[in-house]
Amino acid sequence: MVWNDRDRAEDNRERRERTSITARALLETERLAREAKTARLRDERLAAMSVGKPRPVAAKAKPPSRRKKRKVVDVS
């Protein structure tokens, strides 16, 4: 079979369409997973609040270290 430019262009277009369809399906699956996780975490948080458990506290950041500054000594 001899390929001409029209056949290659059509083949490339079909390949791009299949890739786009697959990518959209993957993005939709990821979006649904994110939404499900968000809903689950929200439900857990609301359930914990209704029971009266305190909210988890984030760890405090360490204060910056107070290193001694170098003294500049003039030797001249």
Rank of each mutant, 00 (worst) to 15 (best):
M1A: 09
M1H: 05
V2H: 06
W3H: 07
N4S: 03
N4T: 07
D7M: 06
D7L: 14
D7H: 09
R8F: 01
R8W: 07
A9H: 09
A9R: 14
E10H: 08
E10W: 04
E10K: 14
D11A: 14
R13Y: 09
E14Q: 15
E14C: 04
E14N: 12
R16V: 04
E17Q: 13
R18D: 04
R18P: 00
T19S: 10
T19Q: 15
I21R: 14
T22P: 00
T22D: 13
A23E: 13
A23S: 12
R24E: 12
R24A: 06
A25G: 09
A25N: 11
L26I: 10
L27C: 05
L27W: 04
L27P: 00
L27A: 14
T29Y: 06
T29H: 14
T29A: 14
E30L: 15
R31S: 14
R31H: 10
R31W: 10
R34H: 08
R34A: 10
E35R: 13
K37E: 15
T38Q: 06
A39E: 13
A39K: 11
A39R: 09
A39W: 01
R40E: 12
L41M: 05
R42P: 00
R42E: 14
D43E: 13
D43H: 07
E44I: 03
E44C: 02
R45L: 12
R45V: 06
L46F: 04
A47Y: 01
A48V: 01
M49S: 11
M49E: 15
M49A: 15
S50P: 00
S50I: 02
V51H: 07
V51W: 02
V51M: 11
V51C: 04
G52R: 05
G52C: 07
K53E: 13
K53M: 12
K53R: 15
K53I: 07
K53C: 10
P54R: 09
R55D: 08
P56A: 12
P56I: 08
P56H: 08
V57A: 09
V57T: 12
V57Y: 02
A58W: 01
A58K: 09
A59L: 10
A59E: 14
K60M: 03
A61R: 15
A61M: 13
K62C: 00
P63Y: 03
S65T: 08
S65P: 07
S65Q: 08
R66M: 04
K68H: 03
K69V: 05
K71W: 01
K71T: 07
K71A: 08
V72M: 00
V73G: 00
V73M: 02
D74Y: 13
D74C: 01
